[in-house]
Design a protein around this nucleic acid. Structure first.
Lengths: 144, 144
DNA sequence: CACTATCATTTGCATATACAAATATAAGGA
DNA sequence: TCCTTATATTTGTATATGCAAATGATAGTG
């Protein structure tokens, strides 16, 4: 094997971005009940779990930039899936009925996504990978 | 912990995208000797390792879509870092002198990126993660 | 009570990345 | 040799995502 290929296998920047692209494709297949990209569903899920969550908390839980959250919420409001309520500096977000309904559909899609990748990658690898990625993100984020 | 947070930890779509965002930030810091995003350097590296590589092979090695490779190469040509030569259907790519020079700088940046994340994540975790991500990508890609 | 510093959100702008359709080229069969 | 099919690249379009600057709002200090 060429030296360059070894680097591609060993570099976390490359391997993680490549993997993210691949798994995103799989996720899109499983979340085809709506025209939203997968990430939106994770936002919906977090709001479901904590109604009236502030935008800032949302950013933290999802590890996204504030501007990204503004754009996401904008789109979800336009589709009548979430509601925003400003209170001073902060903005609080909660799901509409349509949002709750979509959340239910999402749970099903999530289940089939899990089945899909457990099948392809094996349960062992899937589990370990996600836990390690979680741990690694925490370490990187603490280090900022 | 809320059930929703557990899902965020366990879902490979979420954990891998989150991690990719985090490590990309670190990579950008280490590749600040040029205005190119990290991904371009990996393309440059592959071309360095196999001059006159076809565009299609590049796509395969980097796991990117053909249209993405067109756009990347366009930009690199404009910056006089790579050269393209068409031969029939195919296009062959190689580095210019400037490209080779930038490759040398990139290797240094790569080294310091590795040091950075080995320090933050630990060597063990870093190694395991990248190998597992590589393995998992191969499995997902074979499954298409 | 005014003013300044701090904090949360939004806006402007840029970019990596993909899919689908269009185009260009080659290859193989009649 | 022409026509059809297959393959490689490009183009049009869309979108997630971020950074930096702008805005809006509070809170604490003199």
């Amino acid at each position: 094997m060429q030296e360059e290929e070894k680097v591609l296998m060993q570099c976390l920047f490359f391997t993680s971005n490549r993997f993210a692209r691949n798994i995103t494709k799989l996720a899109e297949k499983n979340f085809d009940f709506s025209d939203l990209a997968p990430s939106y569903f994770y936002m919906i899920m977090v709001i479901h779990g904590q109604p009236n969550i502030t935008q800032k908390e949302l950013c933290q839980k999802l590890s996204i930039a504030p501007s990204t959250s503004t754009r996401f919420i904008e789109k979800l409001v336009k589709q009548n899936l979430v509601r925003k309520q400003t209170s001073g500096k902060q903005t609080m977000i909660s799901l509409t009925e349509d949002g709750e309904a979509l959340y239910v559909a999402f749970r099903k899609g999530l289940k089939s996504l899990f089945e899909d990748y457990n099948e392809i990658l094996g349960k062992e690898l899937s589990m370990n990978l996600s836990l390690m990625l979680h741990e690694a993100s925490q370490k990187l984020e603490k280090n900022n």
